[in-house]
Design a protein around this nucleic acid. Sequence first.
DNA 1: TTGTAGGCGTTATCAA
DNA 2: TTGATAACGCCTACAA
Lengths: 328, 328
Amino acid sequence: MKPNIKDIARHAGVSPTTVSRVLNNRGYISQKTKDKVHQAMKELNYFPNELARSLFKQRTHLIGLIFPTTANPFYGELIFHIENAFSSKGYKVLLCNSLNRVDKEIDYLDMLQRNQVDGIIVGAHNRHISQYESMYLPAVAIDRNLSNSIPVVSSDNYLGGKVATEHLLKKGCQKIIHINGPHELETPANKRREAYEEVMVKEGRFPITYELRQSLDENYTKTIIDQLFDENPDVDGIFASDDLIAATVLSEAKKRGKDIPTELKIIGYDGTSTVKTCLPELTTIQQPIQAIAQSAVDLLIHQINGEAVDEPLKNIILPIQLSNGFTT
Amino acid sequence: MKPNIKDIARHAGVSPTTVSRVLNNRGYISQKTKDKVHQAMKELNYFPNELARSLFKQRTHLIGLIFPTTANPFYGELIFHIENAFSSKGYKVLLCNSLNRVDKEIDYLDMLQRNQVDGIIVGAHNRHISQYESMYLPAVAIDRNLSNSIPVVSSDNYLGGKVATEHLLKKGCQKIIHINGPHELETPANKRREAYEEVMVKEGRFPITYELRQSLDENYTKTIIDQLFDENPDVDGIFASDDLIAATVLSEAKKRGKDIPTELKIIGYDGTSTVKTCLPELTTIQQPIQAIAQSAVDLLIHQINGEAVDEPLKNIILPIQLSNGFTT
DNA sequence: TTGTAGGCGTTATCAA
DNA sequence: TTGATAACGCCTACAA
């Protein structure tokens, strides 16, 4: 069915070795032979089998990507930049949506190793998974500690939480509430929360954090926000740990007739271009998504090439930026 | 370094064949042997090499996905559902962001065939690419004609455009303008436009379509919309061919102090959950994203299994839905 | 400048 | 119930 190197060789009247040489531009080959071989490859519609190549070379140029879901714009954009960067360096990318489920993450990890990926980038946020420790495989984590030996790339989540909280304070908010994701997951949002709580305490305020657990109910977030407003009629500042939560807060507040930003100020987190397009008015903490992607990719390729990861590279922290909108 | 089947065999005191049998649960093997082998695999931290397996079996269980970019929420969500569906059937997914660039699409197509993918799903929208015609590889296109033999899955774009336009008419709009993406790309938006123009003409109205060309300028869309408002101060209805454009229209209109929906009504297209979260007030035509994904996946697996694609399956059209918001 | 042989890790066939 | 062997498609010594 599919032609192989022997078919090409026969068709071109040379040996398989010669074809291989042409393919890899290795050694000396006469132009005439080259042409013959290329001709044969075209005629037979030949695609070199990367499987066989990789098997021999013990190198696949395949990278595994484990992230919660491309359906979330933050990961969608991050993954886009990651794939892009890898593609330009000759790597291909296997996509895994872990949905923050431990079982899926473990299965994917197993699958990727069976498929001989050269390395993985993990941006999923589960509880600790011990497999990462025994694993011998170049890896980079985004916003999560996987094991002692796996470097972590993140943006400055603590600073982000601090800047967000201070921003609301500066704008005169009296009662600031924080909304965060599931605390049991090892998400970067935990540091944002920590910063919020520390800043609040330092300022003599009482920190209140509403926690969103993982839920299949579409309206769950709305319900909790509703509850928040009922329980805190005097809330005048909300720091949401991501923009989608902030968006929900915004629309629920509007439903209640609250005027933004006079009665209530809202700040989100992430600053994806999708949310910037949909809600340009939202004040948010902008993560350097492309820079995170680029760092992670560079760091992984570095490891794949067998180079040592110096201490400062083991924990890369990229700067965030306050993006001023009209919701604060 | 990495243990192979021989290492396991030696460690367990059996032959490689036996290990393979245990691995694949094939033939008769005594429980004792099974246990020994499993033990050895655990001790040596063994991962069967899928490359070698695939090479022999002539089947990779790898699928290529060519889409414009995961950074767009529509594709992000679509790809999420596709990967999910494949994963549950034992397939893995290679992600390709074509960015609607012909050269990238062709390169990816080549790469995927070298990597022996079992099939591909293409949701990229470029001008005609002849490679698809000569290609022997199971494939499914989403919203695009790739070649005569490649089945197409889409939602009812014509109906969507019709419903959107009629909706604005029903709501009393006098001057309705349509905004569409680059006309030279083979996007499904072309059918939405066609429907808009036909409905308008049928109603004795004059159709006006503003076309957004591909641009690297972040503010390009805004500029065009600005121009639209300047040139048509009396516009009172806008049908945007996707939600992100609609979102931009919405914010530009607000900037100009236009009251939505009294002075201007806006309807978008796609209805991703991301946009629904960010802009719940937006009226839009909702595509059945998960159903599109599922159909495409089923159809591809069908082909991979060597089954014929019956005529009705060659062009699957899924229903859309009007999602009523407050912008109309 | 070109060809031959062996092996990358696995599995199917055949034999024991 | 288990083992030896050839083959999947390619590449790298080594030989010519």
